[in-house]
Simulated scan of single mutants.
Amino acid sequence: MGPTDRPGVVCLCGSLRFQNLFESERRRLTALGKIVLAPEAIDEELTSARREALGELHLRRIDASDEVRVVSEGGYLGSATRREIAYARETGKTISSTDPDLDL
């Protein structure tokens, strides 16, 4: 890798109910030499304002990425993940998924 090259940046999106899948995908992508950005579980009760702020923070992760990887099983997509996918499309990001049942 030359001095101006940088590894690809992948932002993981999806429900944190799939925490184990997030962790395995983070490890897999890191082993491939990718920089991985992902949401983190917060140990506090979230107010609607705090939830909104964290949602905006995640959109900034998408802005900083080259690719969005949707973490899901069984075709599940929550409303926040749907919003993130729409935002990734609007900003021209490559979108892929861990779930072959998802039609992205």
Score class of each variant (00 low, 15 high):
Pro3Arg: 12
Ala53His: 11
Leu102Trp: 03
Asp5Asn: 04
Leu12Val: 06
Arg17Ile: 13
Leu29Glu: 07
Glu44Ile: 14
Leu29Phe: 09
Leu21Gln: 06
Ala38Thr: 09
Ile95Gln: 00
Glu67Asp: 06
Asp99Ala: 01
Val68Ala: 12
Glu56Tyr: 15
Thr30Leu: 05
Leu12Phe: 11
Arg69Ile: 01
Ala31Ile: 06
Pro7Glu: 10
Arg50Cys: 08
Thr94Glu: 10
Leu16Gln: 06
Asp99Ile: 03
Arg28Phe: 13
Gly92Tyr: 06
Ala31His: 08
Arg26Ile: 12
Arg26His: 15
Leu16Arg: 05
Ser97Cys: 11
Gln19His: 10
Gly74Gln: 07
Ser24Trp: 03
Arg6Pro: 01
Gly92Arg: 00
Gly75Cys: 01
Asp43His: 12
Glu23Gly: 02
Asp99Trp: 00
Gly74His: 03
His58Asn: 14
Leu54Trp: 06
Thr98Gln: 00
His58Ala: 11
Asp43Ser: 11
Asp63Arg: 01
Ala88Met: 03
Glu67Ala: 07
Pro100Gln: 00
Thr4Ala: 15
Asp103Glu: 07
Arg28His: 12
Val70Asp: 09
Gly8Ile: 05
Glu44Gln: 14
Gly92His: 02
Phe18Asp: 00
Asp103Ser: 14
Ser48Thr: 12
Gly55Ser: 13
Ser96Asn: 08
Thr98Val: 07
Gln19Leu: 12
Arg69Gln: 05
Glu90Phe: 03
Ser96Phe: 09
Gly78Phe: 09
Gly78Pro: 02
Arg17Ser: 13
Arg82Asp: 08
Tyr76Phe: 13
Glu73Trp: 01
Thr4Arg: 12
Arg51Asp: 15
Val36Asp: 10
Asp66Met: 01
Thr91Val: 15
Asp5His: 09
Phe18Val: 05
Lys93Tyr: 01
Arg82Asn: 15
Leu59Pro: 00
Glu67Phe: 02
Pro7Tyr: 11
Ala88Val: 12
Asp103Asn: 12
Leu21Asp: 07
Leu37Val: 09
Leu37Asn: 02
Gly78Asp: 15
Gly92Met: 01
Ala80Ile: 10
Met1Ala: 15
Leu46Cys: 07
Arg82Pro: 01
Thr81Phe: 06
Val71Tyr: 04
Thr91Arg: 15
Ala64Lys: 11
Met1Arg: 08
Pro3Gly: 12
Arg82Glu: 13
Gly75Pro: 04
Thr47Met: 03
Thr47Lys: 01
Ser96Gln: 08
Glu45Gly: 08
Ala49Ser: 14
Ala38Val: 06
Ile95Arg: 01
Leu46Ser: 05
Asn20Met: 07
Glu73Lys: 14
Ser72Asn: 02
Gly14Ile: 07
Ala38Tyr: 12
Tyr76Val: 05
Ala31Val: 08
Leu77Asp: 06
Arg69Val: 15
Gly92Asn: 09
Val70Leu: 10
